[in-house]
Design a protein around this nucleic acid. Structure first.
Lengths: 268, 268
DNA sequence: CAGAGAAGGTACGGTAGCGTACATAGGCAG
DNA sequence: CTGCCTATGTACGCTACCGTACCTTCTCTG
């Protein structure tokens, strides 16, 4: 019997593998502010998120953390364990929005990865998305305005949770974005005036996602596209992606395209 | 016969695997401004860097890219191919400092990964470092001053290349850091006045790494430590890391540490 | 329903880094 | 040696965001 799962990654693996995974899962509740992985402490479990939102943050000063990626029901908290890097995370993973998750002891999960090729493939591809998300938001942080970044964050959160409303205070949002609480307040006001969001005490609701998307930088769309590119072909069985298991298929087109120096560069 | 390699990753794998790798390698010269992987075009090859410096940049606007991580002689250009994500990179990889590299066709490399467990393990651990570097610098970009970031960048470059001097113009440095060229000029001036660097036309030389490290944020040290943590145990054969091949060993201590909500949180 | 505590609004001066622009100075090609 | 191109120095006003502080408003608890 395979329990119903909502987690986007678990839904990508075939039933036989899924039931093997579920056998060692336990369901847990994610409570806001709960720290799933402390900075530099062993990761006891990994979590397939069913609902809610978990943020991963890097340390940038004494007790100061900035978010570097986000995990919702499409993701796995602790994915980097597949990189032989398990045991001690560089980041702190904190529940931001209440939800549920399936939890597996890290060691057991790693064993499963050895014997369940689809699971491994899915997690690998998810990790590619994590890398994309992290690097894109990192770059974004240094280039785009707070308004754009806030819009991006809200859209990513919407994507990750499937909910239009995030129950977070301005203060928490500020922490996640690495800015002042007052800046968030001001910025949300602007967004609200634009009609893209509605704020209530302790929550922000996306009113007009399309418009919000216009206000945000492209980074959101790039990240979303990466997610689709890596994790939807398994459903489409389409495009260039071969079976999720085999890692042997040739790649690309074999075109000449042998690197070339750029002659001048227009602006820079 | 195993040719001498300087690349930090290749040096970590045993001779029998190394020679398998070298069999399919060709040596190439890395020329400044050469683009190894174009944005959204298939990655034909991966490159084990022997010397020089390659920067990986994310797109943040029309023809505008910001660096998200750096690769020197300790690294591999194209490491994310191990994530079943190969074919099309989200990033642009550009040679910044002249050097040499061993090049392998991506497809061949992926085949090797299947049969050479040490190689796979090393690349996996390297990718963990890449993720750490990327997320840390992303967070850093939003928190720390240009002076700190510039110092960090120079130190990372020094680490990656093993050279004290980087032959880059202020303009290029500015691009990489995602700031104005004039800001870099001003900032370098300050660093030079502090006696930590010496600038010549088209190059910056680290004069006093220790002092520069003090001026930089901790991010540099965190990244460096991650590198050591993931990629040196294989040499030490020490600490918690088991054989680089087996992925089965248990992790951590089994301590209780079952997550708990934080009661109050003092400031931020 | 009262009071405390948390969340949100607002304000003020401060500053890092911006966009732009222009002048100078290495250094290479002829 | 000369001219040209690229790299660097420098200046100017500008803006987004900062740190701090203080007040108001909501909401929960008792």
């Amino acid at each position: 019997m395979t329990p119903k799962v909502r987690n986007g990654l678990l839904r990508l693996i075939p039933d036989d593998e899924l039931s093997r995974v579920m056998d060692v899962c336990e369901q847990v509740r994610l409570a806001p502010r709960q720290v799933l992985h402390h900075y530099m402490l062993p990761m006891e479990h990994v979590y397939f998120v069913e609902s809610g939102l978990v943020s991963v943050a890097a340390k940038v000063g004494r007790e100061k953390f900035v978010e570097v990626w986000l995990i919702g029901s499409e993701g796995l908290v602790g994915a980097p364990v597949i990189l032989a890097a398990r045991g001690v995370p560089l980041h702190r993973r904190t529940v931001q929005l209440t939800g549920d998750a399936w939890r597996i002891r890290t060691a057991e999960f790693c064993e499963l990865l050895e014997s369940l090729p689809h699971l491994r493939s899915v997690v690998e591809r998810y990790l590619a998305v994590v890398l994309a998300q992290t690097s894109q938001s990192g770059a974004c942080n240094s280039y785009h305005s707070l308004k754009q970044r806030l819009a991006r964050w809200l859209l990513i959160a919407q994507n990750a949770t499937g909910e239009d409303e995030v129950s977070l205070t301005h203060g928490v949002l500020a922490e996640l974005l690495g800015v002042r609480r007052a800046s968030v307040t001001e910025c949300l006001e602007v967004l609200q005036r634009d009609g893209t969001v509605v704020t209530r005490r302790g929550s922000v609701k996306i009113q007009d996602a399309a418009e919000l998307s216009k206000l945000s930088c492209d980074c959101f769309r790039l990240i979303e596209r990466e997610y689709r590119r890596h994790l939807l072909p398994a459903l489409d069985t389409g495009s260039r992606q071969r079976s999720p298991v085999s890692l042997l298929a040739p790649v690309g087109t074999g075109e000449p395209a042998l690197v070339g120096r750029e002659p001048k560069r227009p602006s820079g």
